[in-house]
Structure formats: structure tokens, C-alpha cells
Design a protein around this nucleic acid. Structure first.
Length: 568
RNA sequence: UGUCCCAUGGUGUAAUGGUAGCACAGCAGAUUUUGGUUCUGUUAGUCUGGGUUCGAAUCCUUGUGGGACAACCA
């Protein structure tokens, strides 16, 4: 995150930066800036969380402040250490660090409990014995007021006794709750005596069976912010309606003289086209085996993007481009893909890989001869390293790089036409061999011009098409996994009428097992990133071994030939 | 029949009362031993009506459209 400055030095702030700066200017909170990233450990982080992470940590960095990591673990039935570990790994991968400020809401359970007791003592909370349905019914609706609970006037002594016994495990889950006593006719639903503690007997992943009552979100979040000295509590828009309650609880808690007060600021959640961001749905995809796991390269999770070959830089850059506002919009995935290409173009090593091979025989090239051709690792680099590719009489080229009856503007190999073999010779197609039954092309024949090897004067000849190739004998087999969007509709979240399984794209994964790559890349390690010449960006999958190389397609190269074809 | 929030090209985002700009996408062209990259040009926008003002995307107001809120989830 950075403040944009134009050439006149005029700064352009997003609304959150503007708030922070005005707080700083007014000298609020001792001119401190302290934020927090507060995930619930009930699932893996996804790209939407990346937006929050970049903001929480970014604002702190930008204003010389600190950012805590806090696990919001107030509901043991949904949470697990598996998620805690993955969340920490993903934040680090994105390039952010909470240093020694790792917290859990459960660290504050005792203080929250004591505070609840204080609230009871001051007559502002009571134990309600009604069922969930009864309570919900009494709450009224957004357009009509609620009614008081029959237990609302319980004595302070009885409330104190009941609440203590709730926590001793004396009562069943669901039999009693603690509610704040505020206003059952408030236009804000969250003020209608919100439930602040409920009984849960499921063991907590950190505190075990110590507690039998757990605080609700509204009773925990603002207070934890307060305990940790948070100054700016940044969250997504759906919490806007909670803010008055957030402030109410903090007001009850803070000393009358103190002017420290955390401030909640809401921003818009990330919505991406063709992407499902709901944690519940993502969990379902994993549980039903519709994807291979949380880190399936088609998943919008951070670990999925990582396995897919996205770089942390590209994700951060994407977040920077989309900005923070209060507009509930929908961002085109092409902007994310652009950010990925932008970075990968700078760092990915170019290799020749033939994804759908067909044999090309150079009939006038000496049998048994091998020449080493020089290829630049990355033409974007000023002093790029160079590697060698073996060239021989029999090569593989891409099946769709040859057409017998080409449409207009096709400038790859066609009968009688000259094309350049990248980093090697100019060749001319002389014929093909087809399968007699199927008509499928089995081999393509061509002749090369020995004067046109790369670097020779004759090689400057203008030739329209340039093909990538590998030597049949020297190339190495590999498996290539081509991923496409998981959903075939632009806004899967909107199609609430349909089962989301119907919205899945059946072609989201294609395994191409016959790929051949140049020997240079055979020693690649998991995570290494390459650009397959003219095809796309790939990385070596974590399951890849020297015996079986597996590449994930991170993102295809822009291919304008497709557009030319559409126009024909 | 409530409360709160939002509205700038197709998409996202600036302009903080003073020339509506940027990015993505699109289109056209140049360069290119990747139909990639790079470069150039270009199409296209302030939701509606009123008001305040010398001047409004910006402030007020009307309407319209969109979103959030009725979990013992966060």
C-alpha cells in the first residue's frame, strides 16, 4: 500500500488513510496507529482476506504503527489448529509479519468474563431462559419493534448466580444465555438485547474445557481491540450496523477519564468475477471432493494461488490496484491475471515446451547430428543468462502450429511456407504423413536452410512465423495441468436458486500428459516458475519429482491469434 | 414498510468547491527470432430532478437504483 503522488506532489488518499491522518492530526490516541488482522480460524485464507491483510498491515507500516495478528476464536465448535497454522503461513507468504504480537480472543476470556459480571452488577445484563426461537421471535423484525423478555427484570443476585452456574456446566447448551439489557425497540436490530454469552460444551482448541460459556462476536471484538490498544479496527462493510454496539460496549468498558478509544472503519469486501469467496462453499468444495483440497490450484485460497504459481508481489499489486472504498462492486478477474502476468513476465525463465506434440522431421539435416542452440533465459532482463537447447533432425512442435489449409493471417507452418524455429534455423514445410484411417497428421516434413542459424547474417531474413520446438530425442516428458476458472458463471454467489455444483466449470482442469520439455528444465524444483514459449506461465507443482515432472499453468499468455480467428 | 450505507466510461479507482485523470478490458498502429513484451494513438463516464455558488462529481434536497441488518456464526 502506498499513497499515490502525482508530479505536482499532490497526494491521493483513500478514505481510510484520510481518516487515519485526521486522527493523527487531532492527536487522538497519543498519535499511535495500531491495527489488527482478526481472522476466525475456521477455514483457509482466501484472496479476499489478502485485501484485509494488505490494509491492516499496510496502514500500520505506512504510519509507523503496529499490526497484531489476533485469532478470533470465540466459537470452539467451528475452529481448529489446522486453520491457525495455515493462516500464519499464508500471512508470512504474503510478506507481512506480526512480530511478537500474536493474540487470541481466548487470551482475553477471563477479562471478558469479568466484564460481563460487571455488566450484570450494573444492571445492564441478564440471564434469559428462553429458547432460541422465542428470543428470535421477540426480537421483532427490522421494520417492527421487539418485546421484552419475561426474564428481563431478574434480580442482579439471581443473574450473577445463574451466569456463574452456566459457566460451571450446570445447564445444557441452549438452555440459557446472557443478554445485554439495551433497547428492545431500537431501530438497530443489534441493540435489541443482544446475546453476549452462550453455553458451549465442545472443547476449545486452546482453552480445552476451562470455559463452558463463550462470548459472542459483538461482545468480544471491540473489547479485544480495546485490551490490545488497537486504534483503527478495519473490517468489511457488513459490520457497519454493528459499529454502534461496538462503541457501546467499549464505552461501558473504558475509564471515564481516558480518551483512548478504538475506531471501527469499514471498507468494501472483494468480489471477483467467476469466483466463489464464501468460506462455507469453499469448505463444501473440499469436503465433497469437488477439488483436491484447500490448496487446489483452482481455489481462490492463498495456498491455492501459491500452488498455482501466483507470486506474493502480484497479489499485493492487484490489491493495490483495486483500492478501498465503500462501493459494493465486482472486480473482473482479468485484472488479477494482468497483475500476475505483469510480474511473471519479469521473473519467469523462458523455456521451450511442447504441450501437444507432433513430430517434425528435417529431411535435409544430417542424421545423428546434434547442435547446441543458445536461448536467452529472459529477454526482459538486461544481462540475461543464456542456456543451450539441443537441436537435431527430429523435433516436436505444437500440433496447432501447423495447418494444411490455413485461414488468412495464419502465419505459422503451412505447406511450402517458411517459418523460423526459435533460436535455430529457418525451415520450409515439404509434406506431411497422415494416418490412413483417421487422417490425423502423424509427421510433418521440412527442409532447413543451413545459412539461417541464429546469429548468421542470413538469419535476418524476414519470416513471419516463429515456432518453438524441442528435440525428440533429447526432450523430457512432463505432465501439464491446465487450469481454468472453477465456475462458469460470472457471479456464482448471485445464483442462490441453483445448487452451486451446477455452476462448476467441467473444463476447469485438463491434464495434458504428453508434454515434452527441453532438457534444461528437467532439473527444475517445485515452485520454480517458467514461461513456456508462446503458451503461458507455468510453475513446477509441489508433487513433482525428478521422475515425474508436473507443471501447473499459472496463467495463459495473452494470445491475440484467437481474436484474429474470431474475425475471420 | 424501519435504520444504516453506497452511486464517476464495460470494470475498478482518482479528482477533498476551480481543466473529469489513471489502470484493466476493447479498438487501431509501430517494434519484435515468443501472435508474448514494449511503445503510440483511440473509443467510452459524473444515476434523475431541483437548490446553494462566479463556479458543483464534490455541499443541500427529491426521486431512482443497489447493498447491509431479524444466527445461541464471525
Amino acid at each position: 500500500m502506498s499513497v499515490i503522488e502525482d508530479e505536482t506532489g499532490k497526494r491521493s488518499l483513500n478514505f481510510i488513510e484520510a481518516f487515519v491522518e485526521s486522527d493523527l492530526k487531532e492527536g487522538k490516541n497519543g498519535k499511535r496507529v495500531h491495527t489488527r488482522f482478526p481472522p476466525e480460524p475456521n477455514g483457509y485464507l482466501h484472496i479476499g482476506h489478502a485485501k484485509a491483510i494488505c490494509l491492516d498491515f499496510g496502514i500500520a507500516q505506512q504510519y509507523g504503527g503496529k499490526c497484531n495478528l489476533r485469532f478470533d476464536d470465540t466459537n470452539p465448535t467451528k475452529e481448529d489448529v489446522e486453520y491457525v497454522d495455515s493462516i500464519m503461513e499464508d500471512i508470512h507468504w504474503l510478506g507481512f509479519d506480526w512480530e511478537d504480537r500474536l493474540f487470541y480472543a481466548s487470551d482475553h476470556f477471563q477479562r471478558l468474563y469479568d466484564y460481563a459480571v460487571r455488566l450484570i452488577q450494573s444492571g445492564k445484563a441478564y440471564v434469559d431462559d428462553q429458547s432460541a426461537e422465542e428470543i428470535s421471535k421477540q426480537k421483532g423484525t427490522p421494520t417492527s419493534a421487539g418485546t421484552d423478555s419475561p426474564y428481563r427484570q431478574r434480580s442482579i443476585e439471581e443473574n450473577l448466580d445463574l451466569f456463574a452456574r452456566m459457566n460451571q456446566g450446570e445447564f445444557e447448551e441452549g438452555s440459557r444465555v446472557l443478554r445485554a439489557k439495551i433497547d428492545m425497540s431500537s431501530p438497530n436490530m443489534h441493540f435489541r438485547d443482544p446475546i453476549i454469552y452462550r453455553i458451549i460444551k465442545y472443547p476449545h482448541h486452546r482453552t480445552g474445557t476451562t470455559w463452558k460459556v463463550y462470548p459472542m462476536y459483538d461482545f468480544a471484538h471491540g473489547q479485544c481491540d480495546f485490551f490490545e490498544g488497537i486504534t483503527h479496527s478495519l473490517c468489511t462493510l457488513e459490520f457497519e450496523v454493528h459499529r454502534p454496539l461496538y462503541d457501546w460496549f467499549v464505552d461501558q468498558l473504558k475509564d471515564a477519564g481516558s480518551d483512548y478509544r478504538p475506531r471501527q472503519i469499514e471498507f468494501n469486501r472483494l468480489n471477483l468475477t467467476y469466483t466463489m469467496m464464501s468460506k462455507r462453499k469453499l469448505l463444501q468444495l473440499v469436503q465433497e471432493g469437488l477439488v483436491t483440497g484447500w490448496d487446489d490450484p483452482r481455489m481462490p485460497t492463498i495456498c491455492g494461488l501459491r500452488r498455482r504459481g501466483y507470486t506474493p508481489e502480484s497479489v499485493r499489486n492487484f490489491i493495490k490496484k483495486i483500492g478501498y472504498t465503500k462501493v459494493d462492486g465486482m472486480i473482473d478477474v482479468s485484472l488479477l491475471e494482468h497483475s500476475v502476468r505483469e510480474h511473471l513476465n519479469q521473473i519467469a525463465t523462458r523455456i521451450s515446451a511442447v504441450v501437444d506434440p507432433v513430430k517434425l522431421v528435417i529431411t535435409n539435416y544430417p542424421e545423428g547430428q546434434v547442435e547446441m542452440m543458445e536461448a536467452v533465459d529472459n529477454p526482459e532482463l538486461e544481462n540475461s543468462p543464456i542456456h543451450e537447447i539441443p537441436f537435431s533432425r527430429e523435433l516436436y512442435i505444437e500440433r496447432d502450429d501447423f495447418m494444411e489449409n490455413p485461414p488468412k493471417k495464419y502465419f505459422r507452418m503451412t505447406p511450402g511456407n517458411e517459418v523460423r524455429l526459435k533460436s535455430a534455423y529457418i525451415v520450409k514445410c515439404t509434406g506431411v504423413k497422415k494416418n490412413e484411417q483417421t487422417g490425423e497428421i502423424e509427421e510433418i516434413y521440412c527442409e532447413y536452410d543451413p545459412q539461417t542459424r541464429s546469429g548468421m547474417p542470413e538469419s535476418n531474413r524476414k519470416v513471419k512465423g516463429t515456432l518453438h520446438w524441442v528435440s525428440a530425442e533429447h526432450s523430457v516428458p512432463a505432465e501439464v495441468r491446465v487450469y481454468d476458472r472453477l465456475f462458469k458463471v460470472e457471479n456464482p454467489a448471485e445464483e442462490t436458486e441453483r445448487d452451486f455444483r451446477e455452476l462448476l466449470n467441467p473444463d476447469s482442469l485438463k491434464v495434458l500428459a504428453n508434454c515434452r520439455i527441453e532438457p534444461f528444465a528437467a532439473s527444475a524444483q517445485p515452485g520454480d516458475r517458467f514461461q513456456f514459449q508462446r503458451i503461458g506461465y507455468f510453475n513446477v507443482d509441489k508433487d513433482s519429482t525428478p521422475e515425474k515432472l508436473i507443471f501447473n499453468r499459472t496463467v495463459p499468455l495473452k494470445d491475440t491469434w484467437g481474436k484474429v480467428k474470431e474475425k475471420e
